[in-house]
Write a protein that binds this DNA or RNA. Structure first.
Lengths: 291, 291
DNA sequence: GATGAAATGAAATAATCATTCCGCCGTAAA
DNA sequence: TTTACGGCGGAATGATTATTTCATTTCATC
């Protein structure tokens, strides 16, 4: 028995229409169909190029659910739904390579006038440029051998303790979250209750301390690194240059050149480095569960 | 009988490499293979999204010829060749999702020979490229008018309370730090002691709640947003799309198209947006101390 | 022309895909 | 508690895909 097309489902022709329809009907969809809807809006490129079966794996639903989703939204089948995403992908495209080459020659510190700073749009565009420039620079300046050795030290450690404060605190929290999500034991030394030294004392002899600090070199963070080094613990760090007080204390150091917009530091390059460390470590652990 | 790989066929990694190889070897290819080569270079988008059979029809060759072409150029099969065209279309990315899907389907199949994933240098370069393309994308997709309105709401608020958890917690901490450093009063709702509702209760009537959450939509964060909205507080949010449970609760929403590499979320675009919000707000406060 | 190696296309095969079908489960009304 | 029902996931089905096989054609060389 052919189900009559859903009365509330209008004919959808393009991606924006689909998006609008999903927003309008989101609470009329079942739990699983909502899950599919979220995945489709969050990963439109994947939808454009992958098969239904593969998307089902990625979205963590059975294939049948995606077929149901397509029909529910008024399409004949999955192919019609996918066509919407493919059209979106093949529409307006940017010549990425050329723009990246242009950006590579740009100065690291992006200068914009005072008037521009009060315009959020200009600020945003300036930050995007600054972030791109700093990424292209660090791509060539990061010591890749040191990166590999850095990951090795973390792999050897039983638990990774992360010390980061003030501006770097968010990144430290991010790293702890990331390490945990790949199955690496990790603790954040957050100095809660001013108990940082107690937290350092809780570090085991086969553990590793990862220190993240820049520029103002938060005294508490430096103190943590010093105390740990004095105890003979392995210390690695992510910081800005060799003059950093934690560099001399560390077995391995990754130097991250920071881009700035005015006085404001962009944490983008450091963030990318942290991501790389986490994912590389995760991969290493997956390949050699016990090392 | 396994044919030995063509000695003149170097390993091809990207589209430009393929293009160069085709130009270099064009007279060593047979008539039909040249026909395929021309079609592939003239219609790269078609190659990226169509099946082998359909491409065979478009290029007016039998399907077998395209399989031969792929092998002749040193690929394992058509799928590997097509991957080059898909990467070109989508921008650089790591094939994590693909591998995770394979792993789920065949858990015992271990592919250790793949050094792209266990090599930290390769992972790093992949992340840099992914970050750059996501930045170039968000530069055009972010709603600049909404950004300005967003900043205005924060400017109007007496105190900004920030709710963010799990993967977004680090960014929330970063935002609170940034807001404080420009002189904006800010509190982080960190759910310490499971006292999030007490923290929400402490929000003043002229304050603003800034919610940051993506994709898995941490239930505690959503609950905070719901409670605040119910109390009539002003809520703004940074999230991934309109289906996010906090979007409907928010007076202003900034949508950040997040670039995921496999299961790992790149927070770079969101980070840049947050920086822009903070700096814009700081500038506005400096120009109009009392608003 | 005759010959053999390379190239080609049709057809067979195996793998994968999208869709449908059916039984199970949880929920809500009876 | 029982019953009815919608949603769900697994398995079967049929369609399509990518690859291999093999017979034929083409073409350079003798």
């Amino acid at each position: 028995m052919a189900k009559p097309p859903n009365p509330t489902a209008a004919l959808i022709r393009d991606y924006e229409g689909l998006r609008a329809a999903l927003v309008a009907r989101q609470d009329q969809l079942s739990r699983r169909l909502q899950q599919v809807a979220r995945f489709f809006l969050n990963h439109p490129e994947e939808v454009a190029i992958n098969t239904l079966v593969r998307l089902a794996v990625l979205a963590q639903v059975p294939p049948a659910t995606i077929t149901r989703f397509a029909k529910e939204m008024g399409f004949v089948g999955f192919a019609d739904l996918q066509a919407v995403f493919r059209e979106r992908l093949l529409g307006p495209r940017l010549p990425y390579a050329q723009r990246m080459a242009d950006q590579a020659a740009a100065p690291l510190d992006i200068q914009i006038g005072d008037d521009d700073l009060s315009n959020p749009a200009k600020v945003f565009q300036g930050f995007v440029q600054a972030a791109v420039s700093s990424l292209l620079r660090i791509e060539h300046s990061l010591d890749l051998a040191e990166l590999a050795a850095f990951v090795q030290v973390l792999a050897d450690g039983e638990v990774v303790h992360v010390a980061a404060a003030r501006g770097a605190f968010g990144m430290g929290a991010y790293v702890v979250y990331g390490l945990s999500s790949i199955g690496k034991r990790a603790h954040l030394i957050d100095n809660l209750g001013a108990m940082r030294l107690a937290q350092v004392a809780a570090i085991g002899p086969r553990d590793v301390l990862l220190v993240i600090t820049f520029d103002d070199y938060t005294p508490e963070t430096v103190e943590i690194a010093q105390t740990a080094a004095q105890k003979g613990l392995r210390v690695v760090s992510i910081t800005d240059n060799a003059l950093s007080p934690v560099a001399a204390l560390s077995e391995r150091v990754l130097f991250v050149t920071e881009a700035r917009l005015g006085h404001f530091r962009s944490q983008v390059p450091a963030m990318v480095v942290c991501q790389s460390v986490i994912v590389s470590l995760g991969r290493r652990m997956a390949l050699a569960p016990d090392a």
